[in-house]
Write a protein that binds this DNA or RNA. Structure first.
Lengths: 363, 363
DNA sequence: GTGAAAGCGCTAACAT
DNA sequence: ATGTTAGCGCTTTCAC
């Protein structure tokens, strides 16, 4: 008997339900609906500021919602609406300044627009990259931003993805022109031209280049920029003056060792990337070759350290924060493009040269 | 009539349905179930390798699943099971090497265990931090990792969170001892002792300290370590030798200017952090004071640049990758702790001193 | 070893 | 302006 009475209370007592809601499970739409004797539909609409809901209803819903500390369950909402308000970001590694900084930009922008950001690192392999995308797909992200891995040479996976319109994708920094994927990049070619020209104007006569892996477009373009700048200024192209490195201090050192073993030695280097430039500088210091008097060095990326080493390294800033922002906004544009017109856009950011000591010869 | 026939086909024709599945929407459990004339329950169990499902059923399910390119819908799964296999990570900023590197560690470990990682930046304010957590809560994350903002001095929010057992939380690096939250930190006190002692052993007699904001525990502890090391070696504590900086090159410079204006000038500095140390070195170079001969410098954090500046900066490595790994694993342990026993753990990592040129006087 | 049925919390088409 | 109803895709308790 007593037990029965208790049970009845459980199902009738308004206070009881309320207590439950407060101390136990998170509040739901129906908790609010019950309290106000309206339906969940109305509550849902009120909370989304639906135009056809009366101001007074909205007010009372809002009031009860905050009383119960209601928070919309995004998972349930996503399941029903098909939108998760989450994007996935794939980077080669979170361990570098450059990508950290771009993610910083993406994140900031995404949060402002009410999007969550899932992060995944490919560790520079295409296999991991695909795994990351599959994970994102399972999580039903609304869009994906990716900077492709070093060893991504085949873009069929992306082509298929785009073709099936499974999810919008935008490449940033590391992109490909013929994958049919929108992208945000900086003008690597132009950056390289500027760097090389600067070395020429500073009176260096034999300018070498240490590239990154050439299957990666950014590095390929930087090499092209270097070559074209030389041509335009009537400098001879010398095959011995090009070394394919792998984005590391070590490869800068190796390259320099090789250059210095040549009969005709270079007197300056444009490195495709700052770590390589650093290796080059270390090797030069070791041999007491003076920078920039005897030898000029120019890097690319404006890594944090470049400003603080001695001599300070001339380099190209890649506008990381802007790149992050633009990437997210382009993705957003494609995600919101409901009319089905598939847009493919390419945003090219301007490289910003930063001329420091390492390349400025006192003539 | 014709139309009718067509409509019938739509609802009966197996091929039609299959075609739909292949070219249109992602496959679902019921697509698989239909093909095999079994129920979604069985398919679900088969895919989760439930022990009571026969091997043959499992096999055929797996086969059809891969044929249809089935991918479990994580959102639906989460809604039903209450587990999202997603954790949230809050960092002050993605823009620094240190946090990038810790995130790297977290990410790697989380992915291996099948967890997704949501990232959120607080930009060093407690308000954003809370907003991030609320966002994560709405997304139903299974756990949260946070490195608190500079201006987080009040831990009531966290205390309430833990008390309500809404979601497991673990602090990393920036933590507090009395918030009732588990944490993974390095032994900042010990690191500071080691650094200071090293300077003493290298014959520096008047060792100053530039701290970070002292309401942040890591900086407070580093200051304590500095003070205690001096005491233990019978060095006098001099209030003029302590400058409260704000983790920047600028504050290193400012501190140094102030120190050098003193009657009794220091001959070495232990900086609470590498950027500060860098500022100190810049100021010293400007005044042609030789490092380490005339002045010793010791940093903290092992930022990337510290190895590459001249002279190379002695510093304390914070084991970022390990910190990330341990943080995730501790969180996982708490998340899996179903028996309700609330565990509060504190993992203290060993600081790893890296003695470079800047502190090693040739005596 | 498998099926039936309910329901997680929310939204949206349709009705009134 | 609000209610009714259905269901997103999955998991899980209870049957058998």
């Amino acid at each position: 008997m007593f037990a029965y009475t208790a049970k009845v209370e459980k199902h009738q007592g308004c206070n009881y339900r309320q207590t439950i809601a407060l101390m136990d499970k998170p509040a739901t739409l129906s908790n609010i609906a019950d309290k106000l004797k309206i339906t969940t539909a109305t509550v849902s609409r009120a909370l989304s500021d639906h135009p056809k809901i009366s101001a007074s209803t909205k007010q009372s819903v809002l009031k009860v919602a905050s009383q119960l500390n209601y928070k919309r369950n995004l998972v349930a909402s996503s399941l029903r609406s098909g939108k998760t308000f989450t994007i996935g970001v794939i980077i080669p590694s979170a361990d570098t300044n450059f990508f950290g900084s771009v993610v910083h930009g993406i994140e900031k922008c995404a949060n402002e627009k009410g999007y969550n950001v899932l992060l995944y690192q490919s560790n520079e392999t295409h296999d991991h990259e695909i795994k990351g995308i599959e994970t994102f797909l399972a999580a039903q992200v609304d869009g994906i931003l990716v900077s492709v891995a070093k060893d991504t040479i085949d873009y069929n996976y992306y082509k298929a993805l785009i073709k099936k319109k499974k999810v919008p994708v935008v490449f940033f920094d590391r992109a490909s022109d013929n994958a049919g994927v929108s992208s945000v990049v900086i003008d690597d070619y132009k950056g390289a031209c500027i760097a090389t020209e600067h070395l020429i104007k500073n009176g260096y006569k034999h300018i070498a280049h240490v590239s990154g892996p050439l299957q990666v477009k950014v590095f390929f373009d930087r090499k092209r920029g270097y070559e074209d700048a030389l041509k335009q200024h009537n400098h001879l192209l010398n095959k011995d003056f090009i070394y394919e490195g792998n984005v590391s201090i070590e490869s800068g050192k190796k390259a320099m060792q090789q250059f210095l073993s040549l009969k005709q030695k270079p007197d300056a280097v444009f490195a495709a990337e700052d770590f390589t430039a650093l290796g080059i500088m270390k090797e030069l210091k070791l041999r007491n070759i003076k920078i920039p008097e005897e030898f000029g060095v120019f890097g690319f990326a404006n890594e944090l350290f470049s400003e603080h080493i001695t001599p300070a390294l001339s380099t190209i800033d890649q506008q990381t924060i802007t790149m992050g922002k633009e990437s997210f906004e382009l993705l957003l544009q494609i995600m919101e493009n409901k009319n089905g017109t598939s847009i493919e856009k390419k945003i090219v950011l301007n490289p910003v040269p930063i001329f420091r000591q390492s390349s400025q010869r006192k003539q």
